[in-house]
């Protein structure tokens, strides 16, 4: 396997690792956004909370998410290592620099570091609390025929061994679940304007990071074609640098606005 280490330790190989992990994280972001869009559903968090349980219990997803965490860390620290290496290539700095490259492309390491901080805070806010803190439980009872859902917050002392308790009442024609109310937690968290601002700033970092990162990953993999590169750049810009950060940023804004309007 020495050829593999040789390849991956070359300057191109090192970049390929950044590129592949980066693209994986891009896909994760997309999935994460689509899942989180359920926060906007007006169902008292029924879909979202079920989704949260599914994401943390389904074995395959669990594996993928641990891979994801590992890749985030790898992408971050490998990127910083490369940045450090690259800086060594120019020991004496220029007195004057007039750049002909984009802001994003020059500042990937800084944007990436901001993102790393963001991710730590974000994980602490929700992932850590969801896993380790006694969040209140909520029971959703769905009428199987009408689809109507009744939400009931469990008593403060309520706790359960498993993440989800499901019950069916065939006579009543209902199906109910009891889960941790992460939805509520999200709503409460985003009543804090500082956190909202922090999240919005984080999304700016995502936007700029991906504006360069997405298309750069393709270039690193050797994908540059007069017909298809414009498409890659289009997706990189409109989907990854604009739509996805906007979608994510809409969540804190939505909950904060909801809070301001008194519900």
């Amino acid at each position: 396997m020495s050829w593999l280490t040789k390849t991956l330790s070359s300057s191109i190989g090192k970049k390929v690792l950044m590129s592949l992990t980066g693209l994986f994280l891009c896909t994760f972001l997309l999935v994460h956004l689509i899942g989180n869009l359920q926060l906007f559903k007006n169902d008292g968090g029924y879909a979202f909370n079920k989704y949260a349980v599914f994401m943390t219990t389904f074995p395959l997803i669990k594996i993928v998410s641990y891979v994801n965490y590992a890749l985030i860390l790898f992408h971050a620290f490998w990127g910083l290592y490369l940045e450090f290496q690259n800086r060594k290539a120019r020991p004496v700095a220029y007195a004057v620099v007039r750049n002909q490259s984009s802001f994003s492309s020059r500042n990937m390491a800084i944007l990436g570091t901001i993102l790393l901080v963001y991710i730590v805070v974000h994980m602490g806010d929700f992932w850590y609390k969801f896993h380790n803190e006694p969040l209140p439980y909520v029971q959703y009872t769905e009428n199987v025929t009408t689809g109507e859902v009744v939400t009931k917050t469990m008593d403060a002392g309520y706790t359960q061994e498993v993440k989800i308790v499901e019950m069916s009442n065939e006579a009543a024609g209902t199906h109910s679940v009891i889960v941790k109310d992460l939805f509520q937690e999200v709503g409460v968290s985003f009543q804090n304007p500082l956190l909202v601002i922090f999240y919005i700033l984080g999304m700016f970092a995502v936007a700029y990071h991906l504006y360069h990162g997405f298309q750069s990953a393709f270039q690193t993999l050797g994908w540059n074609h007069p017909k298809y590169t414009p498409l890659v750049k289009f997706i990189g810009t409109w989907v990854f640098a604009i739509a996805i950060p906007l979608g994510f940023a809409a969540m804190p804004i939505y909950f904060f606005a909801k809070h301001l309007m008194g519900n």
Binding site: K15, H212, T220, N224
Partner: peptide, 27 residues
């Protein structure tokens, strides 16, 4: 030499306007 982070500054400054496509090809 450092590694390429695809900033494109090289091609923008190249007096012979060598294209970035070449870097993709090298990759």
């Amino acid at each position: 030499f450092g590694s390429c982070t695809n900033t494109g500054a090289c091609a923008a400054e190249c007096p012979k306007e060598i294209s970035l496509e070449n870097i993709a090809r090298l990759n």
